[in-house]
Design a protein around this nucleic acid. Structure first.
Length: 270
DNA sequence: ACAGTAACCTGTTTGC
DNA sequence: TGCAAACAGGTTACTG
């Protein structure tokens, strides 16, 4: 479910309900996520003002004055603000209590994380190695080109590496490579600088548009208000195997690249 | 350092 | 129709 636009949509949805408030505690029904949820999470977060809700890559960072909540949604996680009395469904693993309401974490596959961290976020092991935000000044075609030198991996893998650039997951990697006219399997070090300029712009465009549409709903992504995202209506190749390329009509192919489904037009992408 | 694979876990879709 | 296999938005740890 969540790539960068979905995480950003979630952040924007929950932030107004959290800023300036304070958590009362937590209810952990299932703490075995990708990393264990701290058993004393409720005591840690209780009673301290929530200063801000930020995002780095696909991590949500909630500043609780005395420490940070670091939340990752994994493949199937979601967060919603609900009335405190709302009964939990089977995969509603954690509630962060907010008085008359709560912030509920649901994650059927349990690939996500809820961590507590005291210290400088720039030093956190999960955050310190990350590359630039794709929508920041630090990200550019030059950056991609430099990162690609000496790398023989398929370009699709390169742009999905968090050390190179964060937040480009499988959907948007497929989409941006199509929009840039680059074959996803092309070796990263055999792409000219000028084409990386195009690719960087396409990555930014597709992410901006997806954020503006509230993310992509493939199966069941819902934002904080329980509404779906609408970007899937604008997907050009992702999930469209067997259908005609929107630009030239050639049948879109599905191939596996680096263990992930890839969709491409062999005529438009070289 | 780089490249490739397996693993984490469960729900849904696909294929026989 | 029923059942098992394949597959799914992410990331890390491990191997060669």
């Amino acid at each position: 479910m969540p790539e960068l636009p979905e995480v950003e949509t979630t952040r924007r949805g929950i932030a107004p309900h959290l800023e300036g408030r304070r958590f009362d505690g937590a209810v952990i029904r299932q703490g075995r996520l990708r990393q264990p949820v701290p058993v004393d999470l409720g005591e840690r977060i209780a009673g301290h003002g929530i200063r801000s809700i930020d995002r780095r890559a696909k991590y949500l960072l909630i500043d609780c004055s005395v420490g940070f909540l670091i939340i990752h949604l994994g493949m199937s996680g979601s967060l919603r603000i609900l009335p405190a009395a709302t009964p939990p469904s089977p995969h509603d693993h954690v509630d962060l209590l907010l008085g008359e309401r709560l912030l509920r974490y649901r994650d059927p596959r349990r690939f996500g994380m809820i961590l507590w961290y005291i210290g400088d976020l720039a030093d956190h092991p999960l955050l310190r190695e990350l590359g630039p935000e794709p929508l920041s000044e630090a990200f550019s075609g030059d950056h991609l080109y430099r990162a690609s030198r000496g790398r023989r991996i398929p370009v699709k893998r390169l742009i999905m590496e968090n050390r190179v650039v964060v937040g480009v997951g499988n959907i948007y990697a497929n989409e941006s490579l199509f929009l840039a006219g680059i074959h996803p399997r092309r070796a990263a070090n055999r792409i000219a600088a000028a084409r990386y300029q195009v690719l960087a712009r396409r990555i930014q465009e597709v992410l901006r548009r997806a954020i503006a549409r509230g993310g992509t709903t493939l199966r069941d992504f819902q934002n904080q208000e329980g509404k779906p995202g609408y970007f899937q209506q604008e997907l050009r190749v992702y999930g469209r195997a067997g259908l005609p390329c929107p630009d030239c009509g050639t049948t879109i192919r599905q191939e596996t690249i680096a263990q992930r489904s890839s969709f491409l037009c062999v005529r438009c992408q070289r």
